[in-house]
Amino acid sequence: MTSPTSVLPPDAPAWPADIYRTLRERDIKQVSYVPDAGHKHLINMCHADNQMKVVTLTTEEEGVALACGAWLGGERSVLLMQSSGVGNCINMMSMLKTCQFPFLTLVTMRGDFGEGNPWQVPMGQATKAVLEAMGLIVYKVERPEDVGPTVDMAAQIAYDSQQPVAVLIGQKVIGAKKFVKKG
């Protein structure tokens, strides 16, 4: 099999491949997502890996339920989403705490550092508080070289200590999209 990392364009940053390798090493089998540009390369690598079961969602809360089902069935999973999707998950996350499900989500931030779209800001600014209010452990990453090791430790506390965990990948890592407007 060709390595899934070969789907990356030459100018791709290193951190999405760092996440991909970590997910493989941590035996993550089910990958669900609502796409975000920040997760583009990781999503492409997961699709290129025939050992990963990739599920495209219509809304992020489906991924929370899927993760619980995966664990009931004996598999580890990860939910990839943008920070705006965190708001869609709130009630479904009740199940993580009530049933003590391990859970890992990797959230690419919008409405964070230098956001150019005002509609993204309210949810982006509330993301960490919302996750913590629902009982998740939250790790935020601001430097590309920290992404892989942080995801690795998040997977460890999620699956070895059976905790719900979110890693927030900040816009300092991803870069803020430019919305150019005159006036």
Partner: peptide, 22 residues
Amino acid sequence: SFPLWGAMGGAAMIGMGVALAQ
């Protein structure tokens, strides 16, 4: 059997996670 007392709207997707794992 896994009966839910909450998580409304999630039953089918929980089933899908189990189905993919098993």
